[in-house]
Design a protein around this nucleic acid. Structure first.
Length: 512
RNA sequence: CGGGACGUAGCGCAGUCUGGUAGCGUACCAGCCUGGGGGGCUGGGGGUCGUGGGUUCGAAUCCCACCGUUCCGACCA
């Protein structure tokens, strides 16, 4: 009979619960700037973990970081037609470079109008393409493997913290290759890098696949994705990896001279992962007491709360805690020193404990005179807050900590995978069943909402969209495990939409 | 951009109908009592009532305009 820290709880109102978790964990807040958020220290610390881990992987696969301008001349952007079409409706545009005081009000100076408007980058294919064209001369310059960490702006109509904001943070990789095979291999290699981050660190089970035509990146030949199921059964695209063909190479004139002397266009790729994954992390693992962080990703893995009820014992308790922290930090888990801190804030100990529970720290230790007497610690596991605290001996706890963190990491992943599997329907065979399944009223009932449907599909985009759009459903991906030639299993049964012959197997779901 | 709602203390709200110069909860500060499931009591600090104009002796309250936020739709990583 414990009250939960978050209100409303998931079962009462999932969208409000999501906002409440962000607030309770003090991760971010609305900024007053339309559609933009302030990422607060705890939220940013999580993003920095994502950055550190992913940046290491990106470099380990041979890529170099660089930085390109925030402002992109309109003329650059215009060069790739499909790309323009996809982004034109959500641009922030800079048209002036000076303000003047007009009747006590600052307004853009008409005389400072730019000859050519600049757009605030929504993505950087075009401006990086310009630089690539200069960087690439010979086949010896290939592959060109660049990445940048940046902010981007997309003027979205409706925003939600982390999931969709007008400005967001991400990394975008841009590469140029001599041929299609090499470029396609790059998109697969980077998808695997993302998979390692998302599954092994963020503990979100992902379905790997390619996007159907209608869901592809504007200007891409092929878009690969990792789709993750949220606790309300909706899908979240956690990252993308695009094979861009020669579309952007043509637009920016990215050419190289081959061994034989021939002049050829490069094949380019781009791939990105944004602060959106933090939204996914929340909706995958958080519970009615707040955020739940997988140990490998957690900015702090262990927090020690000193119990300072007795003034005379104060020094002794704090010293004991500091020593404990030092010993814990000497342990390693997943190749890194265990991240631990002592919470010495002047707050009531119970309040501090709940602060860290809401922030999702994997292990909370309470240490007071009673524990010192026994040379022990009081342990709360975040993946089992309602469970009883345990009171192991100090040395035993420290020695077992890496194993404990690993058990939690695996447990959190396993729980999410179980949810994904139990709510992915493969037994829906007809359009009538499909319609009934997705037609369910989902208001506030996150645990009864539909999940994924995995079914044979004809590939007829127009017919499909006409039928599934009214249900709010989209094709999330054509999963690799059944669609990639190497693993191919020809779908048995007819297309769930048209009833005709099926060419693929598709994942259908509502999505964020 | 269409439809609805809302802008009053850091946050959440009442007060607006029936004008009279601002209040509650929480957070914050101080003291005492507490203290291992997130406290209690007492006393404090903090507000150009979104902005501009109008009506009035007097406006948070009535009227007009504007700005902003939010929910629903079209769009989207």
């Amino acid at each position: 009979m414990s009250k939960s820290a978050i209100s409303p709880i998931r079962a009462e109102n999932y969208p409000e619960w999501y906002q409440a978790v962000i607030k309770a964990a003090d991760m971010a807040e609305l900024s007053g700037v339309r559609g933009c958020m302030v990422i607060k220290p705890w939220g940013y610390a999580i993003w920095e973990r994502v950055q550190n881990v992913l940046d290491g992987m990106i470099k380990a696969t041979g890529h170099d970081n660089c930085y390109f301008p925030l402002f992109i001349p309109l003329s650059y952007f215009q060069k790739e037609a499909t790309h323009v079409e996809g982004f034109a409706k959500e641009m922030a545009i800079v048209t002036h470079h000076r303000l003047i005081n007009k009747n006590g009000e600052l307004v853009p100076d008409p005389d400072s109008k730019l000859d050519e408007p600049l757009i605030v980058r929504p993505t950087s294919e075009t401006i990086i393409g310009e630089a690539m064209a200069r960087a690439v001369q010979s086949y010896r310059d290939l592959p060109l493997l660049w990445n940048q960490w940046a902010n981007v702006v997309r003027w979205e109509m409706r925003t939600r913290m982390f999931l969709r904001t007008a400005e967001f943070l991400w990394q975008e990789g841009h590469t140029a290759h001599a041929d299609e095979a090499d470029a396609r291999a790059e998109t697969e290699r980077m998808l695997e890098v993302y998979r390692a981050l998302i599954e092994d660190y963020i503990a979100m089970p992902a379905i790997q696949g390619s996007k159907p035509e209608s869901e592809k990146f504007a200007g891409a030949e092929d878009t690969l994705t990792l789709e993750v199921m949220m606790q309300d059964g909706r899908a979240l695209q956690s990252c993308t990896s695009h094979y861009l063909g020669q579309n952007f190479a043509q637009a920016a004139n990215i050419q190289f001279q081959g061994k034989s002397g021939s002049l050829e266009l490069c094949h380019t790729t781009s791939w990105g992962l944004s602060t959106r994954v933090i939204g996914g992390l929340i909706m995958t693992h958080a519970d009615d007491d707040g955020l739940v962080l997988p140990p490998k990703l957690a900015p702090q893995q262990v927090v020690i709360v000193p119990i300072l009820r007795d003034e005379t014992a104060r020094e002794a308790v704090l010293n004991y805690c500091d020593k404990l922290a030092t010993d814990i930090a000497a342990q390693t888990y997943a190749g890194e020193a265990v991240r631990v801190k002592v919470d010495k804030r002047d707050e009531e100990s119970a309040t501090k404990r709940w602060n860290w529970i809401k922030k999702g720290v994997p292990v909370i230790l309470e240490v007071g005179p009673k524990d010192i007497e026994k040379d022990g610690v009081a342990v709360t596991r975040r993946d089992d807050v309602a469970g009883k605290k345990t009171f192991p001996a100090r040395a035993e706890f420290i020695a077992g900590l890496p194993a404990l963190l690993d058990e939690m990491q695996r447990g959190i992943y396993a729980r999410a995978l179980e949810m994904q599997k139990s709510r992915t329907r493969t037994d829906i065979k007809t359009w009538a069943e499909f319609e009934t399944y997705f037609g369910k009223d989902t208001d506030g009932k996150f645990d009864e909402a539909p999940g994924f449907v995995r079914a044979p599909w004809s590939g007829d985009e127009a017919a499909t969209e006409a039928k599934i759009k009214p249900l709010g459903v989209t094709i999330r991906c054509l999963p690799f495990d059944t669609n990639v030639p190497d693993h191919a299993a020809v779908p048995s049964g007819n297309c769930i939409i048209t009833g005709g012959a099926a060419k693929y197997e598709a994942i259908f779901a509502r999505a964020y």
